[in-house]
């Protein structure tokens, strides 16, 4: 499941002003994989985007990648 974590990390880092403060962890379950994303306070807005558009797009891509691995993935952005 390394890919899913990296996927979120790569996108979030590209959107953030402080890429080094982006921290992504994954909690793996049997079928579901929870990806936790933390970032610098001022970057959270950048990652989430206007009306959550960035976050929505990241989740869409994450779901496509997870489907390939026959998994479900949930992205949690943690404040």
């Amino acid at each position: 499941m390394k890919e899913l974590k990296k996927l979120v990390e790569v996108i979030a880092r590209a959107l953030a002003e402080h890429p080094d403060k982006v921290d992504v962890r994954e909690i793996e379950g049997q079928n579901t994989c929870v990806i936790e994303l933390r970032a610098a306070k001022e970057d959270l807005g950048k990652i989430i985007g206007r009306e959550g558009r960035n976050a929505h797009a990241i989740r869409t891509i994450l779901n496509a990648a997870a489907t390939k691995l026959r998994k479900r993935a949930v992205l949690e952005i943690i404040e």
């Binding site: 996108i11 590209a14 959107l15 985007g49 558009r53 960035n54 929505h56 797009a57 990241i58 869409t60 891509i61 779901n63 496509a64 489907t67 390939k68």
Partner: peptide
């Protein structure tokens, strides 16, 4: 097919993010 998604939503998501980045 996987990358296109339902009604092209995955393509649209990729497009949106690449454009933003």
């Amino acid at each position: 097919g996987l990358l296109i998604g339902k009604k092209g939503q995955t393509l649209t998501a990729l497009q949106y993010l690449v454009s933003r980045i």
